[in-house]
Lab assay of single mutants.
Amino acid sequence: MPSETPQAEVGPTGCPHRSGPHSAKGSLEKGSPEDKEAKEPLWIRPDAPSRCTWQLGRPASESPHHHTAPAKSPKILPDILKKIGDTPMVRINKIGKKFGLKCELLAKCEFFNAGGSVKDRISLRMIEDAERDGTLKPGDTIIEPTSGNTGIGLALAAAVRGYRCIIVMPEKMSSEKVDVLRALGAEIVRTPTNARFDSPESHVGVAWRLKNEIPNSHILDQYRNASNPLAHYDTTADEILQQCDGKLDMLVASVGTGGTITGIARKLKEKCPGCRIIGVDPEGSILAEPEELNQTEQTTYEVEGIGYDFIPTVLDRTVVDKWFKSNDEEAFTFARMLIAQEGLLCGGSAGSTVAVAVKAAQELQEGQRCVVILPDSVRNYMTKFLSDRWMLQKGFLKEEDLTEKKPWWWHLRVQELGLSAPLTVLPTITCGHTIEILREKGFDQAPVVDEAGVILGMVTLGNMLSSLLAGKVQPSDQVGKVIYKQFKQIRLTDTLGRLSHILEMDHFALVV
């Protein structure tokens, strides 16, 4: 994948999101292997301009796509893939009243899908469409860049269908997702969380590099694949309309690839034109409109599966009536509230959605109805927002919020430890010299600072030695090549209790 991002070429006709291997024109390309080798690009942008032909009021008969309808489940399912879809609609009884809503608040519980998330729908649909058009064949390999849930859905379907599955996901995604993927037989590649989507090191860039190296491999490409919004247009939206008897006044959905909100909203605009569509985008993402909503100094966020630093091709923002931004604290607070007060075992993005819903639905009156999409299960986040310690460490809970008995030293300040200034190293000294210094002084790690004293990161003896043994660096290389740029900081005025929580999850903390 090139470091400079080429513009994806656009073909003359058809839909841009065809499933299957992508040609340089962004659509299915038939021909000899030699032709494909000559024409197939190194990668295709996940934010390529959409060429979708959908228009409100256009006859369904003019759609270029294969459409399906929700099917009634048999008493005995032939395999677990038949437990994807037909998820329950559940009334939220307490939270709406707590925040003064007059309307009825309903939750579409997508964590009841077989793999635990709304992404099971698009995973199965992308595979079925690729099999139907002859792209996927027995023994082929599926590769997908994902925040985890699409990966789980694909790995689940691949396990049943017999495909090899490789999932490329950023490091910030939970260990629970990784464990589930491994249990399903998927191979996992992790990428830096802070890598831009168009960087060769991003999950998108690495996935395309693997595709170019592995024979008979395919990126189904949830960011561009029409099967993504079509899955929701054909099934999720129809289920909502049936469950609500066609009567709903507002739908609120958090947005990642945009397939969920695009597919549902398009069908609702056709069948229930008075329904307002509300999009939820986390602070630090750029999906919301108008652009002024996205202006923030924050560039990272903890909530998973929603928000991006690019506009995915499948996201149709014209069908969203209003956007709201959400933050991590309210997302996790509301997710825990949904679990504790409503018994809905949902993930953090569901918290984002409901946090926005109780604001947006203030305009609705008694007798009206708001539906929220709860995308995934708490299963993926047992060591994250479900953990009091994690919430404390991230600053989303305060010590006084917890009532468990603490040891005698818990409320003492870090400054009472009488710490001395640490050994520091410059980023320009060599790895070999740094190892000598650390061994001589008896230290395992040291902060790396520039000549102005600005902290650049941390270097550890173990990481340097393993990097040297693996051949990633040489003793003569500058130590700046092996620094940890993500590390926890703590102030002298913070409590030892807070430091204790940090050290339970990290090997060190830097006192500043």
Rank of each mutant, 00 (worst) to 15 (best):
E4I: 10
P6T: 03
Q7I: 13
A8I: 10
A8H: 10
P16C: 03
R18Y: 15
G20M: 09
H22R: 14
G26Y: 08
S27V: 14
E29P: 13
A38C: 15
P46E: 03
D47R: 05
S50E: 08
R51C: 02
Q55F: 03
G57T: 10
G57D: 12
S63P: 11
H65Y: 05
H66C: 14
P74L: 15
P78N: 09
D79P: 03
K83M: 07
I84W: 07
I84M: 13
I84A: 08
M89S: 00
I95V: 10
G96H: 08
F99K: 09
F99I: 15
G100W: 07
L101V: 01
L105T: 05
L105F: 14
K108S: 03
E110R: 00
F112I: 05
V118A: 12
D120L: 05
S123K: 06
R125D: 15
I127K: 06
D129N: 13
G134D: 07
P138D: 03
G139S: 10
I143V: 04
T146Q: 02
S147Q: 01
T150N: 01
T150D: 04
G151F: 00
G151A: 01
L154K: 00
L156H: 00
A159S: 02
G162N: 04
G162Q: 06
Y163C: 00
Y163L: 02
I166C: 06
M169W: 05
M173Y: 07
E176F: 01
D179I: 03
D179R: 05
L181E: 01
L181C: 03
R182T: 09
A183D: 03
A183W: 01
A183F: 02
A186R: 00
R190C: 01
F197N: 08
S199I: 04
P200F: 07
S202L: 02
H203G: 01
H203M: 07
V206S: 08
L210S: 03
E213G: 15
S217A: 01
I219H: 03
I219G: 00
L220E: 00
L220V: 01
D221L: 04
Q222L: 00
A226I: 15
N228G: 02
H232G: 02
T235K: 09
D238I: 08
D249N: 03
T257N: 02
I261D: 01
G263H: 01
G263Q: 01
K271H: 13
K271W: 06
G274H: 11
G274N: 10
